Structures are given as structure tokens and as C-alpha cells.
Simulated assay, not measured.
Amino acid sequence: MKAQRISAILAAGAFSMGAGAWQTAAAEGPHSVSANIGVVSNYIWRGQTQTDNQPAVQGGLDYAHESGFSAGTWLSNVNFGDDTNYEWDIYAGFGGAINDDLSYDLSVVYYAYPDGRDTDFAEIGASASYRWLTAGIAYTVYGQANDAPGVVDDEALFIEGDFYYYASLDFALPYELGLGIHGGYYDFDYNDGGNDYGHVGASISREAGEFGTFSLNYDQVLRDTYDEDPKLWIGWNKEF
């Protein structure tokens, strides 16, 4: 969910990302604090598995202020086929509503892989939502891969200059069901488009009261130089 952990990221379909949660907040006041935990059968981020198609346990801690400012942190296990075992994200953002139909979010996210080598990167992002439509962009402002041994002339992915564009549609269905449709396009600075890719996905979710929210999800990359097999996965999250 690198995911999508403040609303600008969640709109990308990370959702990511998702998570589940316990939440503690004052009955009245400008501040709220929440923590979250969730389980997914496959951690998909921007169309691609982060766990080699295996399950993940995820959770985080968030702070929000009535002004629109928010900040937090989020963790998940990952499997990149090396010694990298977990991801730790730190993020902050500011958002608000212009009117009943239109809102916006600004964000900064640092993706850390403490037991990996030269894989951390950071993004700034912006998104806007109009009723059931959300669209946004993320720009990579820093990437450790740029300074990795053997990298010459920015020959790496997830470095400064990468762009990610995304959009999603979210609908409320009968029987407390929700339908989400999303898509994105990764425009890497490296290799003049040789590594760029698009992806699409959809999810059906249902809230189950104190038992949290369950979802059935589909994701697929639209370029044959990547794993383009359809990914079907299930998720659970809870917030209280």
C-alpha cells in the first residue's frame, strides 16, 4: 500500500493499500491518532507484487489534525528475491475540501528498506477528487539506487526524475459493497521508456462492522516485459 498511506497514496490503488486498524481519538478536539493492521494474500503495489506473490502482514500509525495536516508510518514484509525483508514508509500530507464535490491532497513519502541495499526512495505527490473520480501524480525526488555501486549515468529505476500517474473510480453498491476501478502508468527516467509500464485493477470490498473490511482484488500489468499474469488476491483490514 506503499500504497497507497494517506489518501493521495490510497487513491493509487495501493492501497494499497490497505491496512486495518485500531484508532484512538479524543471525542472532541483537533487531533486524532490511529494505528492499523491488515493482512493480504499478495502485496501488490502499482500493479506489481512486492512479496513474490506471497502473503503480507501490514500495519501503521497515523496522526491527523483538523486543519488537514496528517503524518504517519507504515510497515509491511516484502520479498524482492534478495535479503530485503521489510518496507518501512514515513509520510506526511495536507488535504482539504474545496466544496462538497471537490477535494485535494498533497503528500511526501519516504519508502525505506532498512535491510536492503540502495533501494530507498522518496516521492512528492498531488491528487484531486471529484465525486467518485480521483486522479493524481507522484514524482520521485530522491533514490538511493542513483548512488549504488556500478550505476552509471542514472541507469536505475526509482531514482530522481521518475513519474507515476494514476486515476481511480470508486462506487458504493447495495449490501454495503464497494467497487473500485484503478489504473496507473509508471514513466521512469531511465532507459528512454524501455522500462515504462501501465497497469489496471479492480476491487470489490465489504465492510463487516467490528470485523473490519474484506476485499477481493484484481491487478494486471500491461507490458509483456514484466509479469503480466493477472493477480487475484484477497485482503482484510480493520479500523477502530
Rank of each mutant, 00 (worst) to 15 (best):
D147C: 03
V152R: 01
A71D: 03
E123D: 11
D52T: 03
F121I: 11
Y104A: 08
S103D: 12
N85Y: 10
I137W: 14
L61H: 08
A56I: 00
E155Y: 06
T49E: 06
V78D: 10
V151H: 02
R131Y: 13
F69L: 15
G93W: 04
G136V: 03
F69Y: 06
L157Y: 03
Y63E: 08
V151I: 13
H65E: 10
L106G: 12
E155H: 11
R46A: 04
S127I: 14
G72A: 08
H65C: 08
G116W: 14
G59D: 09
D118Y: 14
H65V: 05
F121P: 08
A56Y: 00
F158R: 04
A156H: 04
Y113C: 08
E87F: 12
Q48K: 05
F69C: 13
D52I: 02
T134Y: 01
S107E: 13
Y139Q: 11
S107Y: 12
A56N: 06
D118G: 06
S129H: 04
A145Y: 03
Y86R: 04
A112D: 15
L157N: 09
T140E: 00
N99A: 00
N99G: 04
A138M: 13
T49I: 06
V152K: 04
F94I: 09
T134C: 02
D105L: 07
D154A: 11
I44Q: 01
D100N: 02
A148L: 00
N77K: 09
A97E: 13
I159F: 04
L102I: 11
Y104L: 13
E66H: 11
T51P: 13
T119R: 13
N77M: 08
L157G: 07
F94A: 07
W45P: 00
Y110F: 12
S67K: 06
P114R: 05
L75D: 01
N146V: 00
Y86D: 06
T51W: 00
